[in-house]
């Protein structure tokens, strides 16, 4: 349960970062400069936010000359919507641990 979910949630917990991600989802590929004009924070700050989003698998970057273009990876959100799949894995592994515990309780 923890890993991919947690990374996505913490990456999107910051309102500025969430705003950048939503803008990329709606507006398609954009440069750091283009995003800075709309984000209301400095370009280094936007770059830092993009770095966090990239690490979480939420955006992809593409270098072209001196410009870096960013696109949203919407499919990274699928685990959030399909929580059932994640929880199924979680509970299957908990059941395994429960089984181990029950065996130990015999001794």
């Amino acid at each position: 349960m923890p890993t991919p979910h947690d990374v996505i949630f913490s990456a999107l917990a910051d309102p500025t970062r969430r705003g950048i991600f939503e803008r990329l989802c709606r507006g398609g590929e954009q440069t750091v400069g283009g995003l800075t004009a709309l984000a209301g924070v400095s370009q280094p700050a936007v770059s830092k936010h993009l770095g966090v989003l990239k690490k979480a698998g939420l955006v992809l970057d593409r270098h072209e000359g001196r410009q870096t273009h960013y696109t949203a990876r919407r499919q990274a959100l699928a685990p959030l919507v399909d929580w059932t799949r994640q929880m199924t894995e979680f509970w299957e592994s908990r059941f395994d641990d429960l089984d181990d515990l029950l065996k130990r309780m015999d001794q």
């Binding site: 509970w91 299957e92 059941f95 641990d97 429960l98 181990d100 515990l101 029950l102 130990r104 309780m105």
Partner: peptide, 27 residues
């Protein structure tokens, strides 16, 4: 999400594993 499993243990023992804090912590 539904998980079903057959355990070779009596209900009272499984009940303890599900309701006693130190046992819940184990799994």
């Amino acid at each position: 999400v539904v998980i079903e499993r057959e355990f070779a243990h009596a209900p009272d023992k499984i009940w303890r594993a599900l309701t006693q804090p130190h046992l819940i912590a184990e799994w």
